[in-house]
């Protein structure tokens, strides 16, 4: 038990020092990075570590004869959660969401400190002590609170009332409902029944199994399969078209969607909404190829209102590319990210 608790305490102290150092720029703020795509899991893991750490710490301190009052434990833990959410998590969480998390964790802390009658007594004891002011210190504290509380609350309400120019929050639908069919370069494509004409095997037959077997490997780096190099001149079918799609991608699309298709291209920093990140499991991996075909052909200007067509700089690619080129680019995007397009069945 003791060993376990000391381990917890060790983790807690190390974590706190690391976090503090990163927030106050004592050590580089990139020492422990939040990894793209794994951020939520990483956050939960870190918080679990900290809870273990705090539990260990408080146990160690009470063993060493310096028990930490339950009252301050509760308040300290709550404050820690708030600060963690504000300064650790990136990209930043909007205030409204943080307020929700803060309320939930406040409730949780209350449940914890009031779990039993005895705990609750312990928790409220310091408050009662200050109210009763039996000792000199408590009397001093009571007067301090008397003065500080009104000033603080008055200050907060002033801050809340002063006119501010914060960015208005605008929520946009990322994958709006597609139309039933779309007309590109004079030909109508029904989204439910259309297929990528380049998703073919070496014999030139539509073959999902074959093409899915030749995409890049999932896992760090997402590298091509050793025997499936699109730059091999002997390629026929799928891999040949992947290369042609890649050439089009790197002449047109990478400026925004980036060299790794992660939405961090050369111009991406200037745009809002930011370009889509295809390596994110929430974008093309969730969609059918025909949906992408519609989005690519019609661009930002072709979005329904909930997709913010006025702000998106996504070109209607039918103005720049042929239908064949669009299909090839889509083929390349799935190849390079290692995702299978969703199908109707």
């Amino acid at each position: 038990m003791k060993a376990l608790m000391s381990l917890g305490a060790l983790i807690g102290v190390a974590g706190l020092l690391l976090l503090g150092g990163m927030i106050f720029d004592v050590i580089p703020s990139t020492t422990v990075r939040l990894v793209e795509g794994y951020m939520p899991m990483q956050m939960l893991f870190e918080l679990t570590c900290f809870v273990a750490g705090f539990a260990g710490l408080s146990y160690m301190m009470s063993v060493m004869g310096m028990p930490f009052p339950r009252f301050w434990q509760g308040i300290g833990f709550w404050a820690f959660i708030l600060l963690y959410l504000k300064y650790r998590v990136y990209p930043p969480i909007p205030f409204s969401v943080r307020a929700m998390y803060g309320t939930v964790s406040l409730v949780a802390v209350f449940m914890w400190v009031s779990a039993s009658e005895e705990d609750w007594k312990k928790f409220k004891q310091p408050i009662m002590n200050v109210l009763d002011a039996q000792t000199g210190l408590n009397r001093l504290l009571r007067y301090a609170y008397l003065v500080i509380l009104p000033i603080l609350i008055g200050g907060f309400s002033y801050n809340a009332m002063v006119p501010k120019s914060e960015e208005p929050i605008e929520l946009r639908t990322v994958h709006p409902a597609p139309p039933a069919s779309t007309k590109v370069h004079g030909k109508t494509y029904t989204l439910q029944t259309s297929q990528n004409p380049y998703r073919v095997n070496q014999e030139g037959k539509y073959d999902q199994e074959y093409t899915n077997a030749n995409i890049v490997e999932q896992g760090m780096g997402r590298l091509m399969k050793p025997n499936a190099n699109p730059w091999d001149d002997k390629n026929q079918g799928y891999l040949k078209y992947v290369r042609e799609g890649g050439e089009i991608f790197f002449q047109n699309c990478h400026f925004c969607h980036g060299d790794n298709l992660n939405g961090r291209g050369l111009h991406a920093f200037a745009f809002n909404p930011i370009p889509a990140n295809f390596t994110d499991p929430g974008t093309i991996a969730q969609l059918q190829e025909t949906f992408i075909f519609w989005r690519v052909s019609k661009g930002g200007i072709g979005l329904p209102n909930e997709g913010f067509p006025w702000a998106s700089v996504m070109p209607p690619w039918e103005q720049h590319l042929t239908v064949d080129e669009i299909w090839k680019v889509i083929l390349f995007e799935y190849w390079h990210t290692g995702y299978y397009p969703r199908t109707w069945d």
């Binding site: 009104p150 000033i151 002033y158 009332m161 002063v162 006119p163």
Partner: peptide, 28 residues
């Protein structure tokens, strides 16, 4: 080109901004 920005003309601070916090403080 830039993305959409917002021009925001800061209004002068209204008198209520000073009065209400004071009232709240007295209430506390």
């Amino acid at each position: 080109v830039s993305a959409f920005f917002y021009t925001f003309m800061n209004p002068p601070i209204p008198r209520e901004t000073y009065i209400y916090p004071a009232v709240i403080a007295v209430g506390v």
